[in-house]
Computed example of a mutant assay.
Amino acid sequence: MRISVVGIGKAGSLLAKFFYRKGYSVSHLINRTPEQALKLAHELPGCKAGGFELLAELEDVVIIATSDSAIRDTFLRIWNVNTRPEYFIHLSGAISSRVFEEAAKAEKGVASFHPNLSISSFSISPSLLQKAIFGLEGNEKGIAFLASIAKKEGLRYVNISTESKILYHAAAVFSSNFTQLMLKQAESLYREKLLFDNLSVVELLESYLEGLLKKVKTGTLSEFSGPAARNDQRTLELEQRCLSEINPKLGKLYEELSCMIRHVRGD
């Protein structure tokens, strides 16, 4: 079984390295700018690297690791010159396997296999994938194929229906991107406005994160503290006003999040 990766960015490189080191035949590394693929090929001897001129050579399994907006176009570039591959897979969290509709109608295996990892983590060793949880969605053939590989390689995954793909990704955005944004705002206030030293900032953020992780594990995320939870209107108004003076959008965000806490609590 030969695996080809199209789109040699951080995610594509990580997957190519993972399969190569697990003993799979990674036959082709393809990128819009061939230099990126050629660079990775130096680390993975035996892989053929280049640009879209190689699309006609692909067989067996094709993993498309481009940006979401380019997945459909990349697939069509392949399909229009080469219908031999038996499986078409992409890594997007938001887009479903419906982008491979022509392949599905031809009874190919189609799927999306999204690694729940912060994008900055993609520079870390491919072994990180064995700590990640993938979101798996696709047709019966595609799901069966990826599930068998996941079982063999010890990869964890959750099944997602095609209709639920957008909601799944929205939850991931809340878990990762929005959480990071909140931490970044707190860090900026500690450093730039309160002038705390680096060690104090790190320890403060770590302390709050550890507390949140305990709530995740004990199922108590609906138990809030703070001025919104205790309905301390005076503190809410003072803090919102102070933040609005720094940045009106920050003050508005504080107001909206306070309202959401009350909503979640059922107040």
Rank of each mutant, 00 (worst) to 15 (best):
R84D: 10
R234Y: 12
S222F: 11
N139V: 09
L76D: 08
G109W: 08
A41Y: 05
A171F: 08
I63Y: 00
R265N: 13
K152N: 14
E239I: 13
S148E: 14
Q233R: 12
S67F: 09
E153S: 10
L14T: 09
V81C: 14
A144M: 04
Y254S: 02
G9Q: 06
Y20T: 00
D232A: 11
D267R: 00
S244D: 02
V264Y: 06
G9D: 05
E43V: 05
R262H: 03
Y190T: 03
R21T: 08
A41I: 05
T220K: 14
K105G: 09
S258K: 02
E256P: 00
K22Y: 08
G266R: 06
V6C: 10
K131Q: 11
V173H: 03
T74S: 07
L155F: 12
A170D: 00
T162W: 00
E102G: 05
K141L: 15
K105H: 13
G135S: 15
A104I: 07
L29T: 01
E206W: 04
N198D: 15
N198W: 00
L29G: 06
E43P: 00
L189W: 03
H90Q: 10
L181A: 13
G219K: 08
N247K: 02
L213Y: 14
N231Q: 12
H114E: 06
F196I: 03
R230I: 15
V110T: 15
R191C: 04
T220L: 07
G219W: 12
K214G: 06
N116H: 00
F145S: 02
S188T: 10
S125D: 15
F88R: 01
V158W: 03
E237Q: 12
I78G: 05
A172S: 14
V61E: 02
E245W: 07
L194S: 08
K151A: 12
S176K: 04
G154E: 07
I246D: 01
E187L: 03
C259W: 04
L58T: 11
I64A: 07
F75I: 10
S4G: 11
K214W: 11
I149W: 08
R84H: 12
G7V: 12
G154V: 11
K108D: 00
A37Y: 06
L204G: 01
F224Q: 07
R32E: 06
L54A: 12
I149D: 05
K165G: 10
L38N: 14
L129V: 06
R191Y: 07
L76S: 09
Q233E: 14
L189P: 01
